[in-house]
Nucleic acid binder design. Structure first.
Lengths: 239, 239
DNA sequence: TACTCTTATAGTATATTTGACTACAAGTAT
DNA sequence: ATACTTGTAGTCAAATATACTATAAGAGTA
């Protein structure tokens, strides 16, 4: 989002309190129609006007970088109260064309239906895109997205973070499809089911799936207590 | 190493080409006498004169951050040609007392005996310290070190990076002790041996240990080819 | 030389976990 | 009633993990 340095967006009074060679960019993942999606914003002004990129921007001088990430995400997209985890800093000398700017990438997983998108600040539009179809992002945002995906793949094998992408209630097959989608290979239904149920991480609900034209599957909910226990002693989610 | 902003170390001519709110700090791990060690430097000047901290410093405007990390490590400690991996950015607003500075942490594993330490630049001294005994580092360096350790523990369960800490030739027991040291729990000798040998990652040498007052153990060498193959298909180093 | 001590290395026996399947159950649609 | 689709249960052999026991190969010492 470094284009703001040349857009007239930042009032003169504020400019002095903004760090001028560091920015933040956020990779926000969602999951819809069995596909992994990412949240992008279209720039309103500056050198990348009308181009899509990750939501991000400048850091205030008296603000921690994690706070800056949360603030920027809210300002640009209307999303708040999300657990943003840092990816890393991206600092190739030529990553931003106008000046030397290093950016710190963040990523988060959210349930799309929980949030109303509202383009704000320097964003003309906000929208979800299928990760598989995203291309031509500004600057090095394509690379940041890739690193985000890599992190996601790694993490999902060690922590049940997939639950953050699914609705409260879900079926085992939905969960399995999410794993398949993220990891990129197919799995065996009975085996997946057995393994994940044995972990005691899912609370079965009395409810069943509705409006499906076949036998309805049982709905489950994620059990945060077992999760905490499992995290302590370490575990493996590979399938 | 942010103290350089107030030390007189940087010639006026160079100051203009240095980014003023970002630094680099490196966590360099070594392994000696069955203990995990970390490389620290003692500052020669500035507000942290005579205090110990991680080797690090400022980034030139036309230099990538990875390159900066390598350069700084060389300048301060004499170490070069090391694979430095980025940890993440540290950006609490008050982490550096004199001004707002965000730092990017890096870490690396090296064989201590391969390098001659040479304090240079703004470092008065360079030395190895047992990680377990390190305390009172400057700024937030203690936290960066901790994150480095966490990363190391995580990584060593998925990649055989331990070999970077050991000499060329080593015994199975040395390798096991390294794992125990880093992961913090004891292992079973026969089982460790069986598992690691089956991976075909070690090349047995004709040589044996010398100067030990008991049965000499066979020496092994790390096999980088199998390593590459294993990395591709993914594997698990947990014991 | 014989005995002891220490560490190296081999082997064993059981429980647990995978991975590839088959079979059947429970619904919808025709 | 029958076909079709997806959910769920179960089987079985192979591979792995775990907790051991046993023996080998030295060096050091009496």
């Amino acid at each position: 989002m470094e284009h703001q340095s040349t857009s007239m967006q930042i009032p003169e009074a504020e400019k002095s309190v903004i760090l001028d060679s560091i920015t933040i960019d956020c990779v926000i993942f969602g999951f819809k129609n069995e596909e992994l999606e990412v949240l992008l914003v279209k720039h309103k002004e500056g050198i990348s006007k009308d181009k899509w990129g990750l939501p991000g921007g400048w850091i205030y001088e008296n603000e921690g970088i994690d706070d800056a990430a949360n603030r920027l995400l809210l300002e640009l997209t209307g999303i708040k109260d999300v657990y943003l985890e840092q990816l890393r800093a991206f600092g190739a000398p030529d990553r931003f064309p106008l000046s030397r700017v290093i950016t710190v990438g963040y990523y988060a997983l959210i349930k799309e239906e929980d949030y109303d998108l509202k383009a704000g600040y320097t964003a003309a539009e906000v929208a979800w895109f299928k990760v598989s179809e995203v291309k031509d992002l500004i600057y090095d945002h394509q690379q940041i997205l890739e690193i985000g995906q890599k992190r996601l793949r790694r993490r999902i094998k060690q922590e049940p973070i997939g639950f953050n992408l699914l609705p409260e209630k879900f079926t085992l097959l939905q969960l399995m499809h999410l794993y398949e989608q993220i990891l990129g290979y197919e799995m065996d239904k009975p085996n997946f089911r057995r393994k994940i149920l044995k972990m005691d991480l899912l609370t079965p609900l009395a409810e069943k799936q509705k409006d499906v034209s076949h036998r309805a599957a049982k709905l489950y909910r994620f059990n945060p207590e077992t999760y905490k226990k499992l995290l302590e002693k370490g575990f493996n989610f590979e399938f």
